[in-house]
Design a protein around this nucleic acid. Structure first.
Length: 453
RNA sequence: GCGGUUGUAGCUCAGUUGGUUAGAGUAGGCGUUUGUGGUGCGCUUGGUCGUGGGUUCGAGCCCCAUCAUCCGCCCCA
């Protein structure tokens, strides 16, 4: 017999974990629907050529590939084997597991462009797979939870996603900060120094700021060819602290000659102004000049949500993209999206103890008995209760009564109904409250009243 | 891809400089007035010591390899 185990980097979710996961999923879903987002699902399996080349070289290596069915070696020649796995792979595997929800969404939009009413709001909550090395909070199978508005470049959409963020976390009672910035502001910064072509180097270095500190970022910029003066200017731009409004005014001075920088500030201003009327306090909405968000496809506003009371990383990310679907033959489709890092949100909520008392037990009441007649009566009563919306189950065997009580205790079923000869005679049951041990002899209609109360 | 940590019962872990038949707690089973759980008491099931080699009269312990695990780095959610 082999020792059972989970495949590397994967987990089972038992009833207790599922209760917590569903609690969070349900709240998020509720607000998605409230904001008019429509659910879609896409297959776990995509054609490999849909996926490859979308995530960079490292991403391609992290794709799970699916071996072709049947004799997958039939088209493989000895020359192929010599040429190595990279050349041979397309002949061995034509399909792969989805790596994120964004690329399948882009495929879906471009395939259904004629049916969809734009701007299209969709949400999608599904697992994705990455052949990454598992670590704390990092798995090979995990859920993503995305909402996007595609086919409109209005800044109202950005403000809508901010309101969505606020309503979800206020429902979850999780205190967060939402940092916003714009790629255009960052471009304005390099623009104002005459370094337009160094934007990527700049963004990559700046993204590490809160992790490694200014000195390390400074060093990285100098290594990339930035001058000491330029670094000083950058430092003075990003080290300004103040209210959102003050930051905008401060940067406006630097961006006098940068059209794109000015545009970025204007967009931030517009979104902040709109958000003032979203019905939330928005004290946690912060224009963060140093927010860069790595090397993704974002072109405009970018977001990052963080939990206030926990030191580690971001739990929400997102932003505006202009060109997500062009690789599927649909150019000029601007959209804005937000992605909730479900697994991390669950971690944070667990750390902070934010879950309410969740009833993971299946049944509210267990029926137990001493004879075949009792069993019959229990079965009947059980089905009566279910019609009343009460979750009920019958203990399956005539055994020592003790066993059924231990069973109820272990499953945290709050009530046990005992049906013996005496109860049968009088059309009653003995109802025991497992919390305090109280027991009373009552009728089935009284029992329904009690449990419903 | 790189560096480190740890693999002993279902779970959490002891196990001395290498020395008889590998232990504990917990969980499970049975019993403790046969119609009553959670706490108690008694008995009890359960392990190729991650896997494969090596050293040795003798290996849970030493050496090599390998797999898994967790923690950093890279990257990401």
């Amino acid at each position: 017999m082999q020792k059972p185990s989970n495949a590397r980097g994967t987990r089972d979710f038992g009833p207790k974990e599922m209760a917590k996961r569903n609690y969070v999923f349900d709240i998020i879903k509720k607000h998605f629907v409230e904001f008019g987002f429509q659910a879609i699902e896409t297959p776990s399996i995509e054609n490999l050529n849909t996926l490859t080349g979308k995530y960079g070289e490292e991403g391609d290596q992290l794709l799970f590939k699916i071996l072709n069915s049947g004799n997958y070696l039939k088209d493989i020649s000895p020359e192929d084997l010599v040429a190595g796995s990279k050349k041979t792979l397309p002949k061995l595997a034509e399909k792969g597991l989805r790596y994120d929800l964004t690329v399948p969404f882009a495929r879906y939009v471009s395939m259904n462009r004629n049916e969809l009413a734009f701007p299209f709001r969709r949400y999608q909550i599904q697992p994705v797979w990455r052949a990454d090395r598992p670590q704390k909070g990092r798995y090979r199978e995990f859920y993503q939870c995305d909402a996007d508005i595609i086919g409109s470049d209005s800044l109202v959409n950005e403000a809508e996603l901010i309101a969505l963020f606020q309503s979800i976390f206020s429902s979850l009672r999780l205190k967060t900060n939402l940092l916003i910035n714009s790629r255009k502001v960052l471009m304005g910064m390099v623009d104002s120094l005459g370094l337009q072509n160094q934007f990527v180097d700049f963004a990559v270095a700046l993204d590490k700021l809160d992790k490694v500190g200014w000195d390390a970022v400074n060093q990285e910029l100098i290594d990339k060819g930035f001058s000491i003066d330029q670094c000083e200017s950058i430092k003075s731009m990003i080290s300004f602290s103040g209210m959102n409004q003050e930051k905008i005014e401060y940067l406006a001075v630097y961006f006098k000659n940068s059209e794109i920088g000015q545009q970025g500030l204007k967009e931030i201003q517009t979104v902040l102004n709109l958000s003032e009327t979203n019905g939330f306090s928005n004290d946690n909405l912060i224009f963060e000049i140093t927010l860069a968000r790595g090397l993704s496809y974002y072109t405009g506003l970018i977001y990052e949500g963080k939990a206030q009371d926990v030191p580690f990383g971001s739990i929400v990310g997102g932003g505006r993209y202009d060109d997500l679907t062009s690789s599927f033959g649909l150019p000029n489709m601007s959209g804005v999206g937000i992605s909730f890092g479900i697994e991390r949100i669950l971690d944070v909520m667990e750390t902070l103890g934010l879950f309410p008392a969740l009833n993971a037990s299946g049944s509210q009441i267990l029926f137990t008995y001493f004879s075949a007649e009792g069993q019959r009566q229990a079965f009947t009563y059980c089905n009566v209760l279910r019609k009343e919306g009460i979750k009920a189950e019958v203990y399956p065997d005539v055994t020592k009564i003790k066993k059924s009580f231990e069973f109820a205790d272990k499953k945290e079923i709050p009530f046990v109904a005992v049906i013996g000869d005496e109860e049968l005679k009088n059309n009653q049951i003995s109802l025991k409250d497992m919390k305090n041990g109280d027991q009373q002899l009552i009728s089935i209609s009284r029992l329904i009243q009690l449990i419903k109360a």
